[in-house]
Write a protein that binds this DNA or RNA. Structure first.
Length: 418
DNA sequence: TCTGGGGTCCTAGGACCC
DNA sequence: TCTGGGGTCCTAGGACCC
C-alpha cells in the first residue's frame, strides 16, 4: 500500500504558521513578480478567487473582501517543507518526496507493525500539526494513482477527517461514481474533454474501459492510469523518482532587459541554477538551450533562442557560462524589451556512464564545482557565485508583499516579549 | 502607468537518409 | 515523369503538474 501525504494549500498554510492570527482567514500567495495567484486557501476560493489568474485583475476584489495577499516566500516554504518531510518520513520505511508539499510513503510488508492504516494516517496528521503547525491530508491506496485519488477525497469531501483509504472494491466504486476523470492524477482539461466526447464522464466509467480498446487519440499514459485505478501498479516508485531528462531555469522580469550585459547576467544566473540541479542528479549536459523573449502579451511579441552543443557533455558551470557569453550577440537584439529569459539543459546523460573520447578530453573542474556546491549548501544559495551573474540584479523579481523569512534569516527571527 | 508563473515530459510531423 | 517504404533524428507545441 502507498500513502500520499499532502499539505492543505501549502503556501497559504506556511504563511499562517508564524501568523496565528491569520488562521481561518482568506489568504492567497502570488507567483514571481507578484504576477499570478499560485495558491489560495479554501476561504479565498469561497470568496471567488481562482488559481493562476493574474493578480492585478483581482487586486481590487482582494482589498474589498479582506483577502490577505502574500508574495512567494520561497525561503520559508522550502524550510518548512523540509521540516514537514522529516516528520512524515518517520512513519514509513520508504519515502519519496514528490513536490514541495507532497510525499509518497510505501507500506509494503508493514501489516504486522501497522495493522490499522487509518489510525496510522491520523497519527501522521497529528504529528505534522504538532511539530510544524501545517495541516496535511493522507490518501492511501494500492497504487500511486489510487493514493492520489484517496488524497483528493480526504481533502475535499467532508466526513473523512483528513484521511481516506481506497482498498475496498465497493467503496472504490462509490467514490469513482462521484468523481470526474479530471480529478485523477495525469488527466488534465483536454483529456477530460476528449473523454467526455466519448461518453466517459465519471472515474467509474473510465476505470471500466479495457485499455486495449482505448479510443484513438489517447496516449499510453491514460492506458497506465486506467490500470492503476484498477489496482495494477504501473507507475513505479523508481519511475516517479527517475532522473530528469531536461532541466530548465527560467524567470520573467520585474523590469524589462534592454541591454546585452544585463541579458548575459540574467542568463548566467539561470545557468548556475540549472547546473546545480544537473550535478545533484549527476547528469552531464549535451545541449544547452538559451532563450530570451518579450512578453506574449506585447503588441509585437518576439522570441529568440539558440542551441549550443557540448562534446564532451559537461555540468561545469564555467564552461556553459563561457559558451553563452561568446554567443550572446546572436540572442540580443537592440530595441527588444526582454521579459522572459532562461536556459534548458537538454540531451542529459549520466556522468557515471560517460563514454570517454580520446580526442576530446573532459575539461570539467569537478573539484571546484564540489567546493561551490558544498559552500552554497551549507551557507545558503548564492553564498558563492560566478561574477558573470553580476551583483546588481536590477532585473530580479518583484516581491512587494513579502513576509519575513522567520526560519532562515537571523534578522527575521520572531521576537517574543515576556 | 503597468501588470499575465515555472517546470517537465510526450508526441506529431518535418527533414533527411538509404 | 511519376510513384513508392522504412527508419532516425530533431523540434515546436501540447499537455500536464504544482
Amino acid at each position: 500500500m502507498f500513502a500520499l501525504v499532502d499539505a492543505n494549500s501549502f503556501y497559504c498554510s506556511a504563511e499562517q504558521v508564524f501568523r496565528p492570527e491569520w488562521r481561518g482567514k482568506a489568504i492567497i500567495v502570488l507567483s514571481n513578480n507578484d504576477g499570478c495567484i499560485v495558491a489560495a486557501n479554501k476561504q479565498a476560493i469561497a470568496l471567488g478567487i481562482q488559481k493562476f489568474q493574474p493578480f492585478f485583475k483581482v487586486r481590487h476584489l482582494c482589498e474589498k473582501a479582506g483577502i490577505i495577499a502574500c508574495s512567494s516566500n520561497y525561503e520559508l516554504y522550502a524550510d518548512l517543507s523540509h521540516k514537514m518531510m522529516q516528520v512524515i518520513g518517520r512513519f514509513a520505511p520508504e519515502q519519496h518526496i514528490y513536490s514541495i508539499d507532497e510525499s509518497f510513503l510505501s507500506f509494503n510488508d508493514c501489516k504486522k507493525h501497522i495493522p490499522d492504516l487509518i489510525l496510522h494516517a491520523q497519527k501522521i496528521r497529528r504529528a505534522v500539526w504538532k511539530e510544524t503547525r501545517l495541516p496535511v491530508c493522507v490518501g492511501i491506496g494500492k497504487t500511486l494513482t489510487l493514493a492520489k485519488v484517496a488524497n483528493h477525497v480526504a481533502k475535499k469531501w467532508p466526513g473523512f477527517n483528513g484521511v481516506c483509504v481506497l482498498d475496498d472494491e465497493n467503496f472504490n466504486k462509490t467514490v469513482f461514481e462521484q468523481l470526474a476523470p479530471i480529478d485523477v492524477w495525469g488527466i488534465g482539461r483536454k483529456t477530460n474533454e476528449k473523454l467526455k466526447q466519448n461518453g466517459i464522464s465519471t472515474v467509474l466509467q473510465l476505470s471500466k474501459i479495457n485499455p486495449r480498446f482505448l479510443p484513438v487519440g489517447f496516449n499510453i499514459e491514460l492506458h497506465r492510469t486506467i490500470k492503476e485505478l484498477n489496482g495494477e501498479a504501473c507507475k513505479t516508485w523508481d519511475g516517479v523518482r527517475a532522473d530528469k531528462v531536461q532541466i530548465f531555469s527560467t524567470r520573467s522580469m520585474s523590469k524589462r532587459i534592454t541591454n546585452s550585459d544585463s541579458l548575459n547576467q540574467a542568463l548566467a544566473k539561470h545557468i548556475g541554477i540549472a547546473c546545480v540541479k544537473a550535478r545533484e542528479q549527476q547528469s552531464l549536459c549535451g545541449t544547452l538551450m538559451v532563450f530570451a523573449a518579450s512578453s506574449p502579451f506585447d503588441k509585437k511579441p518576439c522570441s529568440y533562442k539558440m542551441l549550443i552543443h557540448f562534446n564532451p557533455p559537461t555540468n561545469d558551470t564555467s564552461q556553459l557560462l563561457k559558451a553563452v557569453s561568446e554567443n550572446i550577440k546572436l540572442l540580443f537584439k537592440t530595441g527588444v524589451p526582454y521579459y522572459k529569459v532562461g536556459v534548458g539543459l537538454l540531451n542529459l546523460s549520466q556522468a557515471q556512464q560517460h563514454q570517454f573520447d580520446l580526442f576530446h578530453p573532459i575539461q570539467n573542474n569537478t573539484a571546484l564545482m564540489n567546493v561551490l556546491d558544498n559552500i552554497n549548501q551549507r551557507y545558503g544559495n548564492d553564498s558563492t557565485f560566478f561574477a558573470a551573474q553580476g551583483v546588481n540584479e536590477a532585473w530580479s523579481m518583484r516581491r512587494e508583499l513579502l513576509t519575513p523569512q522567520y526560519t532562515t534569516k537571523w534578522s527575521h527571527i520572531p521576537h517574543i516579549f515576556c
